[in-house]
Amino acid sequence: MPDRRSILRGLLVSALAPAAAHAQRRSTAGPLVAAAADLRFAMDELVRVFRRETGMAIRPVYGSSGQVFQQIMAGAPFELFFSADEDFVFRLADAGRTVDRGALYAIGRIVLVAPPGSDLPLDPEMRGLGERLRAGRVRRLAIANPEHAPYGLRAEEALRAAGLWEAIRPALVFGENVAQALQFALAGGASGGIVALSLVLAPTFPRAARHVPIPATMHQPLRQRMVLLKGAGEAARAFHAWLRGPGARAILARYGFILPDRG
């Protein structure tokens, strides 16, 4: 029965093809770099420019800093880690997973965003949000999960400083990381969200959406630290060094990061 055989062969090929493609890709791919989700768009650009200048490829993976921390502790094969909260880097260093105690590369800022079509009034101290809340007119506000995402924790602190935390809790939706919080804030009829400035400065941010920076005095600073992990190879080390140079610093500044004088 030729048809039976051809079906079986088709199944076999479709089952084995991903494995073959996988083996091929692996040989040419660069080191895996784990980055906090606020770097999602900035890092894509950094990796692109680095590749153009040096010919070396880097594979970035994004997540909340707390999740990446867990993954590294569970043995994930990353060579370089960019954490939105330097505490995670110090904890990895204490656990003996890193080459050193890392370098401060940026300080992050949070912003209040309103999606296209939302009439949420935006002001830095979030007074408009408070008025809307008291009038019962805030449907959903998206922030990153404060349990493991540094930007979520800072959003919570800012909402507490504004005296809105208890009142707004029933309306909060939590993103797994700050990039997902932005996606939630822009989609599904949400009133808005509190996310990273670096995400709203990306070219992909919708033109019709609005944002306003929340004063850095309303929350603990987002001190962001990068660190080489044990076993980091040549390309990861070169990328780490390049990031402290003028080209990379200019890109980070363009995405709204405050740069340390010298990490």
Binding site: H22, R26, A29, L32, R59, V61, G63, Q71, A76, P77
Partner: peptide, 10 residues
Amino acid sequence: LMVGGAIPGE
């Protein structure tokens, strides 16, 4: 997602 962590090319 939990076991693999969504690593590109892996």
